[in-house]
């Protein structure tokens, strides 16, 4: 589903690369944790999949297509096939829960009837049934992130990218979010989640790819992760 072929990304000429000759393959319906300290290249990985940035060397394939060869007017179509969730939720504060999710369908031209039918289903999937008309500020952090996830998956993308989705949440709430992501994954969506939350990684027992200074240092099926805090403690 996603393939990185010796990808190097250098942001400015004299700095060290954000990604350094990374080769990696993520299969369809796989769940992958991308772990590593801040600055290890997790976010760069996500940006390259979305074609937000251009690779310096190598190639990124999404659904079999080299993203470098996608002309700019086709990039929206690429992005429709990828849902994204961020640490800071990025909801529209003046729209209700329903409207926030519906927004993602409106902007790609879905009809009102389809929207009315789909959005409640998706809100149920993320565990927000009955909160259609709440405003984002009336929700807890975990609920806001569920809205963001609902928005990311409402157009049924094949891939869900999550950049530190639990970074702002307490452990209990985080586990709730992980259950939602796991459920989405079990429906056949490829999930790539960047995180440095070792508790979550160790509980979920999924594939773990560890990045350090832009290089893949470990790629374990059902792996664990020991974050820096633990390393220092030892």
């Amino acid at each position: 589903m996603i393939r990185f072929d010796a990808v190097t990304k250098v942001y400015s000429n004299n700095s060290r690369p954000a990604l350094d000759a990374v080769s990696l393959e993520v299969d369809r319906a796989e769940f992958v944790f991308l772990v590593g300290a801040s600055g290890s290249g997790k976010s760069t990985f996500i940006r390259l999949v979305l074609k937000e940035d251009r690779v310096s060397r190598g190639a990124v394939y999404v659904a079999g297509q080299n993203v470098a060869n996608i002309p700019s007017w086709r990039v929206p179509k690429l992005r429709r096939g990828i849902g994204v969730v961020f640490q800071d939720f990025r909801l529209l504060p003046n729209k209700t829960v329903f409207a926030n999710v519906a927004f993602a369908m409106q902007v790609i031209g879905k009809s009102r009837a389809v929207i009315r039918e789909t959005v409640p289903d998706v809100l149920q999937t993320v565990g927000l049934e009955g909160k259609n008309n709440r405003m984002p500020h009336e929700l807890s952090g975990g609920e806001q992130q569920r809205v963001a996830i609902a928005r990311a998956i409402v157009n049924k993308p094949g891939i869900l990218l999550a950049d530190e989705p639990t970074g702002n949440l307490d452990p209990t709430t985080s586990m709730g979010i992980m259950k939602v992501l796991d459920r989405i994954n079990s429906n056949g969506t490829t999930v790539v989640m960047a995180t440095h939350d070792d508790d979550i990684v160790n509980t979920m027992r999924k594939r773990v790819v560890e990045l350090r200074n832009g290089s893949v240092v470990r790629d374990d099926a059902q792996g664990i992760y020991i974050g820096e805090t633990e390393v220092l403690a030892q």
């Binding site: 979305l50 700019s72 007017w73 929206p76 179509k77 690429l78 992005r79 429709r80 096939g81 849902g83 994204v84 990025r90 529209l92 927004f103 993602a104 902007v107 790609i108 031209g109 928005r151 990311a152 157009n155």
Partner: peptide, 17 residues
């Protein structure tokens, strides 16, 4: 910019944005 950022992420076309 918040709206347009989201529109971009969910794959709205250039024209719609």
């Amino acid at each position: 910019r918040r709206e347009t950022g989201i529109m971009r992420l969910v794959g709205a076309s250039k024209a719609v944005i």
